[in-house]
């Protein structure tokens, strides 16, 4: 149990992922589906950025930094990349939802469906 207290940010990111999976499975509204994906991305980003934390560490920037250890810098760079990627994906997905609404008058994943079988 003390593990949970130790690793709380990691567990929180796993729970965020689980909640996001719940949303993408059970919510038929396409906008909500996209929100679920955004949430999943936040979970993964939280996980990666939490990996690099060192207790009492400073941000890894040498400009006027107080003495002490520095947190790992690679996870921060990875998170930065991943955030931009997710912005890009979300923009494209929202565009497609706008078009779906234009074409079918609905953003329910079941009612706006044309392809099946």
């Amino acid at each position: 149990m003390e593990n949970i207290a130790d690793n709380f940010p990691f567990v929180a990111s796993a729970l965020l992922l689980a909640v996001a999976f719940y949303i993408v499975i059970f919510r038929k509204n396409l906008i909500k589906l996209i929100m679920g994906i955004a949430m999943m991305a936040s979970g993964v980003n939280l996980f990666i950025v939490a990996l690099g934390y060192r207790t009492g560490g400073n941000a890894p920037i040498y400009t006027d930094v107080p003495p002490g250890p520095m947190v790992l810098s690679v996870p921060q760079a990875l998170t930065l990349t991943s955030i931009v990627i997710n912005v890009a994906v979300l923009a494209l997905m929202l565009t497609m939802v706008i078009h779906t609404y234009r074409n079918t008058g609905d953003i329910d994943s079941e009612k706006s469906r044309k392809l099946k079988g």
Binding site: D6, N7, A14, L15, L51, G52, R54, L72
Partner: peptide, 24 residues
């Protein structure tokens, strides 16, 4: 799935003390 993910997360190094840190 959630049980696997959460229990997996408990096996990661303790928060705030990453262990090998060679590259960084």
């Amino acid at each position: 799935l959630a049980a696997f993910l959460v229990s997996g997360m408990l096996l990661v190094h303790p928060f705030g003390a990453p262990y090998p840190t060679d590259m960084d």
